[in-house]
Design a protein around this nucleic acid. Structure first.
Lengths: 199, 199
DNA sequence: GCGTCAAGACGGACCGTCTCGTCTCGCAGT
DNA sequence: ACTGCGAGACGAGACGGTCCGTCTTGACGC
């Protein structure tokens, strides 16, 4: 996908890859605040200037590193749709649970989260490139279910997406409890049925 | 309440206050990563050693500063209970919306969030001292409603709390949209009714 | 020859430790 | 009670170290 290279620079792809890899490794090892550009350059076997030439900050480097990871497996631009909403959502939630329990994913995403909290512009780009797209994919599946009559007509789909997928992310972020398939199931059941007694 | 002085240290309360105030101000002005202990000491009119003597890190200083704020107005250890669950939750959610839109609260809490993401031990202490307590308070209100028959018997209350209060925090954290009373109402309605069509 | 590259020198900001001299406290001994 | 003394905490800041972001050098490739 190097159509962006249509611009100008004679950029060393080998160095670029080495930098992104080193950034990801180091972020996982020492965390975001202790991540230094000097250390990235050293591990990548690269001059500091090569990093400063192409990225404005360590946050941007880490952002690109994680983006490269996420873009690779972003082949699936849609959620499964077997007609059974609950089963489909459960499948996706369980996949998310597995991802969140992967130590590599956990550490690099935590570092990225810090980077996004500190850099508002980068956070906007993240939303534009990833978060919003993922949100739409989930919303699409709910809309399909709504049209099929499996979701009430007056339900706000944005709120619904947040209610189904938010609690898992929150528990991960705050470490307020274990991330298990059972927890995901509980969230899903509660979200689908709501709190009110069903007459 | 100086019964804790029964220990040993002759600690200068004036300096302590000045340090916490300076930390909070600076965190709001420059953000967490650019917050430096030297700057805190300078603004507080205090020697660096006085900070290093009592706190292990800038994260701990900021934690205490925010904790001091939150403890002051923690007089309310319970949610309103008028018998109308939806109205009571709406009241609380609207108060949360106001808080999240306050620039001072926003910036200091964002800095604290970074500190908690970077320091796992501090995050555990935060959960123990604040998050868990607040969670229980909300859960208590839902339990009361459940006993009164306003919430279905088989609803998992932990999941319910997450579903009602989580989306607002998520939107704040990721800046994925405006924090409005209307959004809070939508979340609340969706959570209470669930997604399924109500025959 | 022009731009990128690895390497690293450079002044500056903060780090965390330390050493000063000052002060306030609590506890003698008188 | 008055006084003298040791223990800490205090403000201030010097210190070596790390990393910052910029700049320079010389080699390499287009």
């Amino acid at each position: 996908m190097p159509q962006t290279t249509a611009e100008r620079p004679r950029r060393n792809e080998k160095s670029r890859q080495a930098i992104l890899t080193a950034a990801l490794q180091l972020a996982g090892e020492v965390g975001y605040t202790k991540l230094s550009i000097e250390a990235i350059a050293a591990r990548a076997g690269v001059g500091k200037q090569t990093i400063y030439r192409w990225w404005p900050s360590k946050a941007a480097v880490l952002f690109d590193a994680v983006l490269a990871l996420s873009t690779n497996d972003a082949g699936e631009t849609t959620l499964p749709d077997t007609g059974d909403l609950e089963a489909d959502l459960r499948t996706v939630l369980h996949a998310t649970v597995r991802e969140l329990n992967d130590p590599g994913y956990d550490r690099s995403m935590r570092s990225l989260t810090v980077a996004l909290l500190e850099d508002e512009g980068l956070a906007a780009e993240y939303r534009r490139n990833l978060a919003q797209r993922m949100h739409e994919v989930k919303k699409d599946r709910l809309r399909s279910a709504q049209l099929a009559g499996h979701v009430a007509e007056d339900v706000d789909l944005d709120a619904a997406v947040e209610m189904i997928f938010g609690p898992l992310m929150n528990r991960w972020l705050t470490r307020s409890g274990p991330i298990t398939p059972e927890y995901a199931d509980t969230i899903l059941t509660t979200a689908l049925n709501g709190l009110r007694p069903r007459g």
